[in-house]
């Protein structure tokens, strides 16, 4: 599987990374080298192997249905680059 400039562009878009046109080619090369290297995994027949779902052998921890958090809009929003009245503010979103 080979990655070309357009693929890098598409993936960068999915990942929301602005990518200068002139760097696409180089990045495609880097990704191809890494992907070619990881593809050595195909040497191993894994048809009878289950993928790992968790490294720890334990059951999923659950919390009780109690309100133990919240009520701190200042702490929640104080690191925001932009906001008002405890809202986060972003450039206008058109639906």
């Amino acid at each position: 599987m080979s990655v070309d400039k357009n693929t890098v562009k598409r993936v960068a878009k999915l990942a929301r990374l602005a990518f200068p046109e002139e760097r696409l080619e180089a990045m495609a090369g880097e990704l191809n080298r890494i992907l070619a290297w990881v593809e050595q995994l195909n040497e191993v027949d894994t048809s009878a192997v289950e993928p790992m779902t968790s490294v720890v052998k334990m059951s999923l921890k659950m919390r009780e249905d109690k309100v133990t958090d919240g009520g701190q809009p200042v702490a929640v929003t104080q690191n925001a680059p932009q906001g008002e009245d405890h809202f986060f503010a972003v450039p206008k979103v058109v639906e």
């Binding site: 009245d85 809202f87 639906e95």
Partner: peptide, 14 residues
Amino acid sequence: SLHDQHPELSYVDL
């Protein structure tokens, strides 16, 4: 997201 509070911004309430 609230879109009608500000001309250029949307406000986000989580």
